[in-house]
Amino acid sequence: MTSVDLKILAVGAVTIATYTLVANVIPQLESELPPEMDLSAEMTPDELVAIGSQLYEGAGGCVVCHSETPGGRAPNLRTDFQGEGTIGSRCADRVEGLSCKEYLHQSLVRPGDHMVEGYPPIMPSVERTLAQPQIWAIVAYLESQGGEVTVTTADIPDEPADAPPPGEVPGAAVALSDPAEIVRQECSQCHVHQGEGVQLGPALDGIGARRSVDELRRAILDPPSVVSEGNEELVGLMPADFGRRFTAEQLESVVQYLSGLR
């Protein structure tokens, strides 16, 4: 091997090593895998409860509002609530004619139907972020908090076993073109705008003065990347599927509309 060959090898090695080094010194981010939920037909109630517990603590985002400390945004479910006991022990008595699991399921998918007095209507339907098998797993978990688990796999509708994870439930494409109407229909489930909507996330009135256009776009497409001060605990609640459900035109019109709210 000649000295020229050695020099060429050295140049090659230094160049390749430099690129490898640069790629290694910048922040290392790995794409996260959505959690696996094996909701098969042979599952026992205990297994359903275990999955429900996981979802309740994590992807379901329930603990954000249903905390055990006094003064939470929503009723405490896992320890005694105003002397009525835990949710599993009181759920069957909440609404006449509804069994415990029916009440809990309805409360999850249509939260406005059975409001607890003294609490604002801030809860979004979990159907937006969870698949039916996952919702039934949470029902089983809530039943287990002081009551008997009556949910069986027979309750779970026939959906693919590998139910899509939170934020990946394919939502229906949005057919509207008026951005104000899109905001009213899609955003007001968690954001107040012009006196309408649920006060869970930050209000949309004046959002254009608080956020740049780029931030608004990212907040819609990649919600965890833009978090308002004081709302850190809500991270993960906002559906991350708007990128699939909006066309590029719809997205830009909504972003421009929000940007104009000053």
Partner: peptide, 13 residues
Amino acid sequence: ATPALGYAAQIIS
């Protein structure tokens, strides 16, 4: 899971 860039850089190299 798609690996982080540092790991990918080693494979690319």
